[in-house]
Design a protein around this nucleic acid. Sequence first.
DNA 1: GCAGCCCTATTACCT
DNA 2: ACAGGTAATAGGGCTGCG
Length: 798
Amino acid sequence: MSVYRFWLLDINYVVKGHQPEVWLWGMGSDGKNVLIIDRGFLSYFYVIPSSGEDVERLAERIARLKANLSFMAGLEVVERRLFGKPVKAIKIYCQDPDLISEYVKVVLKVRGVESCLEDDLRYSMRYLLDNNVVPCGWHEIEAEEIPNTIGVQVDKVLLAKSRPKYLPDILEIPKLRILSFSMVCYSPKGAPKPERNPVVIISVVTNEGDERQFVAESSEGDYNIVRDFIDYVRRFNPDIIVGFESNRRDIPYLLVRAKKNGLALKIDRANTEPHTSTYGHMSVTGRANIDIFDYADEFPEVKVKTLENIADYLGVMRIKERTIIEDVDVAQYWEDPAKRPILLRFSMDNARCIMGIAEAILDFAIQLSSLVGLPLDHIGTAAVGFRVEWFLMRHACQMGELIPKRVERPYVPYAGAIVLEPKPGIHENIAVLDFKSMYPNIMIAYNVSPDTYLSPEEPDPPSGVYVAPEVNHRFRKEPSGFYREVLLRLIKARDYIRVELKKFRPGSPEYKLLDARQKAIKVITNATYGYAGWIGARWYIKPVAEAVTAWGRYTITNTIKMARSLGLEVVYGDTDSIFIRYEPSKVEKLSKMIEESLGLEIKPDKIYTRILFTEAKKRYCGLMPDGTLDIVGLEVVRGDWANVAKNIQEKVLEIVLKEQSARKAVEYVRKYIADLRDRRVPYRDLVIWKSLAKSLEEYEVRAPHVEAAKMLQKEGWVLAAGDKIGYVITIGSGKLYERAKPYTLASYDEVDIEYYVTNQVIPAALRILSLFGVREEELLSPKSAKPQSLLDFFGRDK
DNA sequence: GCAGCCCTATTACCT
DNA sequence: ACAGGTAATAGGGCTGCG
């Protein structure tokens, strides 16, 4: 027996004859792939006695059930806390974790049992939580090698002789074998259906430089390529498999195709097929199956989350250098021998893009996984709320706080932040002062937490309370709350990493790793308030979230008052920021005042040379000292306007802010409209993208993007909530929804250019130019009357 | 029959 | 399926109008 050091890649469990085994799949420090089998970890759940019930007596009553519940392995009375209140609970051990839900039903019927807790945790997660075993983290374990009689695809199999011991100080990531794949399916008409249409191309790229392409010999049979793909995966033996929309599309498709061909998609390390797991992800036992698409939300700048757009954004592969083949066109490319090579190239490039994106996001995914404690293949599919919750659950366990049940609650809204009315027009030399992590710091400063909250009936405790303004919710000053403790740890960890970061050269592996770690910490820190206000949260208590925003409003209004008292002119503000005319010495004073009176930190974030406010809140454009534009909320940064509108608005903003001439901007718009009318702008710049928020039948109204989506559906494409519909408006009469058409099914000749002039370009341009008195007619008429006097708004403009 | 108004549904943004 | 605050468009119903 020896001590073995490994990095945890994946975890699952099996139960054989009511005896559970945890399977820890890892990378050894000796460079080997290992499976460590840990037997004998006892699962359990808690029983909360009804109030006034004698817990020892209740325990005895439950113990008597042993005759019926034969795999109950003992019980004990323990002291825990629930929402901060001390409780005596009965911890009931169960030999077979899969029997827990059954046993809970029986136990709940026992007189004096109020409820059961923590019976809803999967055995493997229970194991991770209780033993502080961390996915994507290094551990040491006493173990002995045993023969690989089960035929798993690893270098060695070990039998655990101790529980793993987490080594938090080793951040290093072992060398991982990564395989990316992308596939093309052939359907002569409509969307490919796995029951009838074959896979014709599978492209594969590995991070060891191998590139392969499996191509079907004919349009009918895909036996060969499915088999070759399975063989290839097994031969390469990747630790990580990456795809794009592979959870939802590729893997389920391949499963059906394999079956059709009498094959089994055994691409894992345990000779089983991929299976659906938590949060709708496809689990590949012993490997981490990652869907790049699940990380698309990390890039909000990318509005339409296609593979090529994300790759372009990350600099992996430029769209300009690619031929993009739309889904609707795949069949003709496959059928035409002259065009097929383009399709092959397209597919190979997709696999390369997936590998490139994987390499760009993997550091972050790994850090998020180890921080939150969810396995690498789960962390991407878990929604933000669940990521935060798993992080909290880990700490709850360590702090003796019981994990509350998930309960359904009605949605009752509460008041949020304050947004100031901007002063429309152009302002010079404006500084933005931002509170640093305002909500987390409020939660820390006032100890706002589910376990420190005092309900109205409860008296003030001796140590005193913090009372939230407006809403008057009270929170104990002591002891330090659950949220406060967790947030302090996060902030401390991030501060430490930021210091460490300075020791390394940007771009070095160490730097990338630490940077990814601090980003993961930041994400979880910033999401904690949102979690607190989420009705789906286990630790939801509305007054907690309500108090945080109340203190937020109090903080910003006081800040504004103090700024004004110092003679600073406040021109705008939103939630945790104020925009003021920049006067360095006064700003310095203000920071100090706030620090002293509120205990929160505010600092200048950026200084605009010039800034333009529209009449609307949350929509402005600032000119930075380096000449770049900071565009906020306007059409330019929105994904649901055609590029023609976005392009023209950006240009208008640039001219107005840099050259300070509305007249020039008007000229530019007129020229642009002329070009548009001559169809000199690319077709793609006319496409309007909108998401489907629900399934098509659920829509109450007829809207352009919904009608366009219905046309796609008619063609056989499967559409679901979250899909983006790209459409153009075509010539004709009647409502817009009658003239909307998916851009892939329409052509340039059908497009109603005047719609784009009137409803896209003009409104986008006027949003800015109307501030200077420009009217629609001036943009439309090629040679309008003399420009209005207001046009030359700076006098010095020639 | 339709312009004008108001309201609702819908989407995507900001912090 | 992390929060609330906000802007904006299109559709749809209603009113008033020779």
